[in-house]
């Protein structure tokens, strides 16, 4: 490391990387064509179904569309990510 590199920006903070990351996220939403209203409706429905079986923490609930590497590792695919904290199980009638 030389003296001048101290003044230079680190690569991961370069503004083009910020641009790339933001673009990728925006495009995931654009390409799936899922509006925030639809996502909100989906969220309500998921809560409704899950609440039949368990008590969940609705405050901490996190549902979003993001992306992950595809199975064949050739690119990325959109995924529905849901993080739903469980408070307790409900008694379910199993017959």
């Amino acid at each position: 490391m030389d003296f001048f590199s101290f003044f230079r920006k680190k690569d991961n903070t370069a503004s083009k990387n910020v641009a790339k990351d933001r673009l990728k996220l925006v495009l995931v939403h654009d390409r799936v064509n899922c509006s925030s209203q639809v996502l909100e409706m989906l969220k309500t429905d998921i809560i409704k179904v899950i609440s039949n079986y368990m008590e969940i923490d609705e405050e901490e609930l996190d549902i979003q569309i993001t992306q992950t590497q595809s199975d064949d590792k050739t690119g990325t695919v959109p995924v529905l990510y849901a993080n739903i904290p469980i408070k307790s199980m409900r008694k379910v009638n199993q017959d």
């Binding site: 370069a14 083009k16 990387n17 673009l23 495009l27």
Partner: peptide, 18 residues
């Protein structure tokens, strides 16, 4: 600007748009 990391490069754009 690409060299400085302040503009997306040809590869960055083609990667995103495929």
């Amino acid at each position: 600007m690409v060299k400085r990391g302040d503009m997306m490069s040809i590869d960055d754009v083609t990667e995103i748009l495929a």
